[in-house]
């Protein structure tokens, strides 16, 4: 039986593993964290239909059954293309695993919001990221640092995305929808709260997203202000005062909020560059792995037997990630069948 090794037990890795196992391959997943599900594991609910993130992970994990081995808490130390065409995957505790095909599904990390110092993350009490807010939603307690119910909440779009000053020109794709989702969820929780979203462009690109935006306005009264946050400062009472231009009004404004939520963008996962170097894969200027051709060979690399899936090639929604992982599984199967002959 041929061996397929997958790097990453996130949504992409789990999805591809299930398909490959069904086809009849021996699948091993190497995961750096101590749990599966990747970034989605720390989420509460998902857009567009508010399903539980835990349910989604259950759904992608269930078809794995017995046939797939996941090794957690692993660090990859070497990746070597061998003479016989296989790939040697080395880790500290497992030694070398010989893979007939390797799928890189190493995913993304959230942009480190500390780097936008002018927004005060890690400095002011009541500045959070969207991931922090998801944890609060999961725990059922959305409160300020001092334990009060927030009356005004501000969401800042494009934190660490579309920003030359942090070296990320690209759009992270999912954060606009996430802001709309979270803004609506806050209003479900606290109908009297005032919620503001500060955006440059609202990217509601899939069919249901515009409805979410519409409902955020109509049902929840979320106020959308077109302007990018210039800076935030903390007041004596630990609320956060925002300085921003309402570009539609052509007027600068000050507004204080009890909670400021930063929509941190997607960065390639921390190991991406290391994996790329070991295998000789290409990264684009953003640091994401690049497939051979984005139209026709979106899961393939220049290195024979090495494939890509999920957000390691760029920001994706979860449905896009799942579709991409399935397509990678099919490509790997095609490749291995051809090699057999």
């Amino acid at each position: 039986m041929k061996n397929v090794v997958i790097i990453g037990a996130g949504v992409a890795g789990l999805t591809a593993a299930a398909r490959l196992k069904d086809i009849g391959y021996n699948v091993t997943i190497i995961e750096k964290k101590t749990y599966d599900g990747g970034n989605v594991a720390s989420w509460d609910r998902l857009f567009p239909d508010s399903r539980r993130a835990s349910r989604l992970i259950d759904d992608v994990r269930r078809p794995l059954g017995e046939g797939v081995t996941i090794h957690y808490d692993q660090r990859i130390t070497s990746l070597v293309k061998m003479k016989d065409g296989r790939i040697g995957v080395g880790t500290e505790s497992l030694g070398i695993i010989h893979a007939d095909a390797l799928l890189v599904a190493s995913g993304f990390s959230l942009f480190d919001a500390h780097l936008k110092e002018e927004y005060g993350y890690g400095i002011y009490d009541n500045v959070y990221t969207q991931a922090d807010l998801e944890s609060m939603f999961s725990s059922g307690k959305v409160l300020t640092r001092s334990g009060d119910i927030p009356r005004r909440i501000g969401f800042v779009h494009c934190v660490g995305s579309r920003d030359e000053k942090v070296g990320n020109r690209y759009c992270s794709k999912v954060c606009c929808v996430t802001a709309v989702k979270q803004a609506s969820e806050i209003k479900q929780l606290y109908p009297d709260a005032q919620v503001y979203c500060f955006y440059m462009d609202l990217r509601m690109f899939e069919l249901p997203y515009e409805d979410m935006y519409f409902n955020a306005q109509k049902l929840y009264g979320v106020r959308f202000i077109r302007g990018r946050l210039c800076e935030a400062a903390e007041k004596m009472d630990k609320s956060v005062i925002l300085k921003v231009e309402d570009t539609l009004a052509g007027q600068t404004l000050n507004l204080s909020v009890d909670m400021l939520v930063l929509m941190a963008g997607m960065r390639p996962a921390s190991d991406t560059a290391r994996i790329a170097t070991m295998l000789g894969l290409h990264c684009n200027k953003e640091g994401f792995l690049t497939p051979v051709d984005i139209f026709s060979r979106g899961n393939e690399t220049e290195v024979d037997g090495v494939f890509l899936a999920g957000t390691c090639t760029g920001p994706k929604t979860i449905p896009q990630t799942i579709a991409d992982a399935r397509s990678a599984a099919i490509r790997i199967d095609e490749y291995l069948k051809k090699r057999k002959k």
């Binding site: 440059m200 462009d201 077109r226 302007g227 800076e231 300085k243 231009e245 309402d246 570009t247 600068t252």
Partner: peptide, 10 residues
Amino acid sequence: CIGCGTCTAG
């Protein structure tokens, strides 16, 4: 320029 207004706000 994408007209984000950061320059104006600051």
